Simulated scan of single mutants.
Amino acid sequence: MRITENKKFEWFLKKFGSPIHSQIATQETIEKYRNRLPDALIDCWTEYGFCSFLDGLFQIVNPEIYKETIPTWLKGTGLLEIDTFHVFARSGFGELFLWGEKTGQHFNIEILEGSIFDNGSDENYINKEGSSEAILNFFTVLKPSSLDIEDINTEEPIFQYAIDRLGALADDEMFTFEPAPFLGGEQTFKAVNKVNFFIQNEILASMGQREIMDIKCLANKAFGK
């Protein structure tokens, strides 16, 4: 079955539209990650390549290009000892979505926050239903609004404003705030800028913050507990 014939991925495409900036996934890359990443993701690469949606708000990426970002953020956290992780997608604000070979979409790296978000392990689900069903669930629940960031003063989404002012994102670009929020910057329209993702990643990762967060931690942080 082609990935576009899958109902879960079809729902993803209804929300995100047709892909842009597609780059062909070579057979070498496909074979390297076969049996390490879900078949459904490999099928997506085969049909669409590595591509962007909504002017770069969401990208399905080549994990080979992003492999150095994982130890940069996860070294010293203990997470590298529990699973083997690969970056399979990212947002226009640099949020990295990781796939663990055993635990699935367990962690995101939120580089503008200097933190690692714990979604909870998918290991039990994967063992029962398979990795393809697990990653298709990720695509099903993903929403454009969940990838956007709001101005802290107006509560208005920033991404479209940034596109209008700075232009659509290339494959190696992201929007950031200067300075980044975890360095004291503010998420505002006036602070947004477009930068090279890999340079920005290296700069922010070098600042040393490695806070692992989950839903409970975020709630406590939001309400000052």
Rank of each mutant, 00 (worst) to 15 (best):
T46V: 15
E101I: 14
A162L: 12
K14Y: 12
E211F: 11
F12D: 02
E155G: 00
T140L: 08
V61N: 06
R165K: 15
V192H: 11
K14V: 10
Y66E: 00
K32E: 15
D118M: 13
M207G: 02
C44H: 11
I30H: 00
N62F: 08
L142I: 11
V61Y: 11
N6G: 04
A170Q: 13
I42L: 09
F107E: 06
N6W: 05
P144R: 05
D83G: 04
A162W: 02
Q209C: 01
F9W: 06
L74A: 14
N196Y: 07
F139C: 02
V61K: 08
S52H: 14
E156T: 15
I199V: 09
K102A: 05
W11N: 09
I70H: 03
F139G: 01
R210K: 09
F177H: 04
L204S: 02
P63C: 02
V141P: 00
A191H: 13
I215A: 10
V141R: 07
L142E: 08
I24K: 15
L183D: 15
I212H: 04
S145F: 10
L96E: 04
C44M: 11
L37G: 07
A191F: 06
D214A: 01
F175R: 13
L112P: 00
L74F: 15
R34P: 11
F93N: 00
S91D: 11
N119P: 02
D118H: 11
T140P: 00
T84P: 03
N62C: 10
L142H: 01
K7V: 09
I70F: 03
E156F: 12
D118V: 06
N137A: 12
S22R: 15
D148T: 14
R210G: 06
V195M: 08
E31V: 00
D164Y: 04
D55M: 05
G104T: 06
E101R: 12
N201A: 00
E110G: 06
L80G: 01
F50V: 05
L147M: 12
W99E: 06
